[in-house]
């Protein structure tokens, strides 16, 4: 019984690590960690500059993608419709641009690799010299 419980725990952790989003930035960004509140400010397009004054380019996956929905709920603690409403309201009142939309995770990584100041998220992150993982505290 104890073995079964242990197996369930290991499986649970494995599933969690396989599906949890990793926040990734272009290597030009001089940060290794962000708070949850900062991450929310960035993805709701309220904070548009890094501390050195360079522009932040936010990259997201399509609204309907499960990766985007999971990231929105787990990392930003916002329901996806709330995030979409915020972006729509900002972009149609002129106070912010919508984030860039990648078609899939490969496209997301390509945009993150080639755009200084960019930030996005991936599941099953594989180390890449042009990008780096950011820890969320």
């Amino acid at each position: 019984m104890r073995r079964l419980a242990l197996l369930a725990l290991v499986l649970c952790c494995a599933v969690k690590s396989a599906t949890a989003s990793t926040v990734v930035v272009n290597n030009s960004v001089a940060l290794d960690k962000l708070t949850s509140a900062q991450l929310r400010s960035i993805f709701t397009m309220r904070q548009i500059q890094w501390p050195d004054g360079s522009p932040i380019y936010v990259v997201v996956l399509p609204d309907h993608s499960t990766e985007h929905q999971r990231f929105s709920r787990e990392q930003l603690r916002l329901f996806p419709y709330q995030l979409t409403n915020i972006w729509d309201r900002q972009s149609f009142s002129g106070t912010a641009s919508r984030p860039w939309q990648a078609t899939d995770q490969a496209h997301m990584m390509e945009l993150l690799r080639t755009t200084p100041g960019s930030i996005g998220y991936v599941e099953q992150y594989q180390a890449d010299p042009a990008v780096k993982e950011v820890r969320i505290e």
């Binding site: 708070t35 509140a37 548009i48 500059q49 004054g53 009142s93 106070t95």
Partner: peptide, 27 residues
Amino acid sequence: YFYNSSDLQANLYLGRIKNQHWLYSST
């Protein structure tokens, strides 16, 4: 965008501006 820090961001708008005050006024 005249103030940028980790916990405070501020903007100044000049011109013909939208009413940002009510829940749905800006759009």
